[in-house]
């Protein structure tokens, strides 16, 4: 018995969702991210202590029944700070990724669709930019513009956006040779219409996968910038910042002041990675 599949959009979507729900890595990753998203949104309300409240008499206490993860050198409760610390990074990193996706999509559509001189100029500039180590670009930009959450979002958004535009461009290059684009050209549709209404919906899957992966790298970048003092600023309970203020005491055996923040960052990036891997598998299948 033979089946005839008609690939309507809704059946394609159902297929993708079914594949996602069968994918173990995707479900585990989504669960981890859901946990941290809840902490970011409502963490402040259910933590046992105020993450910023100091209690010098109980400074540097090891994990105990009152303080599950111990206290830092100002006596602040580390469990509360780890839960609340998810908020800043989970705001800045996704915003930077959204900015990067917008920049990458527009730049990729323009260079891929027009080709010629637009493509040549942008491509050479982007290649030159990609040849410079990202941390150096970020460091230079932040030294020049000063430290703020806005600068971090702008720097990461611009930097990742130019890289993403290469993926979008190569997708556009193969797409623009297809008949529906020729048909739209014959209907005398405007270039903007062809790029954003005709081509864009067809290249969404690779853009989606790339953005999900980029969230992981954005978290890497935000955490790293905070750790070296160029990202989020005190007294934010941000994980990278907490590690940066506490790691000098690591030789003294105060492991709880850094370990839980490190594990929090690790769980978040691995969660996003598992989710991106599952998404890639489902959209590719």
């Amino acid at each position: 018995m033979t089946h005839v599949y008609i690939d309507t959009p809704s059946s394609r979507h159902q297929e993708v969702f079914a594949a996602l729900f069968r994918s173990g890595p995707f479900l585990i990753g989504t669960a981890i991210i859901f946990f941290w998203a809840v902490c970011a949104a409502f963490g402040q309300q259910f933590v046992p202590y105020d993450p910023l409240a100091q209690d010098i008499l109980n400074a540097l206490g090891p994990p105990s029944a009152e303080h599950w993860f111990g206290t830092d050198q100002l006596g602040r409760d580390i469990f509360s700070r780890v839960i609340a610390g998810s908020r800043d990074i989970l705001t800045v990193a996704p915003l930077a990724t959204i900015l990067a996706t917008i920049i990458g999509t527009v730049l990729g559509l323009l260079t891929g669709y027009f080709r010629g001189i637009v493509d040549d100029v942008f491509s050479r500039l982007i290649e030159a930019k990609m040849a410079i180590p990202g941390v150096i670009v970020a460091l230079l930009a932040i030294v020049a513009l000063g430290t703020s959450e806005m600068t971090v979002i702008l720097v990461i958004g611009l930097s990742f956006g130019t890289n993403m535009s290469r993926t979008v461009r190569s997708a556009v290059l193969s797409e623009r040779e297809l008949e529906y684009v020729a048909a739209a050209t014959l209907r005398r549709e405007s270039a903007v219409h062809i790029m954003f209404v005709e081509i864009l919906p067809n290249i969404l899957p690779p853009i989606l996968v790339e953005s999900t992966m980029r969230v992981g790298y954005a978290i890497f970048a935000v955490a790293t910038l905070s750790f070296i003092g160029f990202g989020l600023q005190p007294p934010s309970p941000d994980w990278g910042l907490s590690i940066s203020t506490n790691y000098a005491m690591i030789g003294g055996g105060y492991w709880w002041t850094v370990l839980f923040d490190a594990l929090a960052i690790a769980s978040l990036v691995i969660g996003i990675n598992l989710m991106a891997d599952g998404l890639y598998g489902a959209l590719d299948a």
């Binding site: 590690i243 030789g251 492991w255 960052i265 990675n273």
Partner: peptide, 26 residues
Amino acid sequence: SIGGVSATILPEFVSGIVLILVFGVW
């Protein structure tokens, strides 16, 4: 594959801290 990519996106200071704790302090 999954382990490799996960290690790749782990910031160096995070893996560094865990390595210091395990091999240097404990």
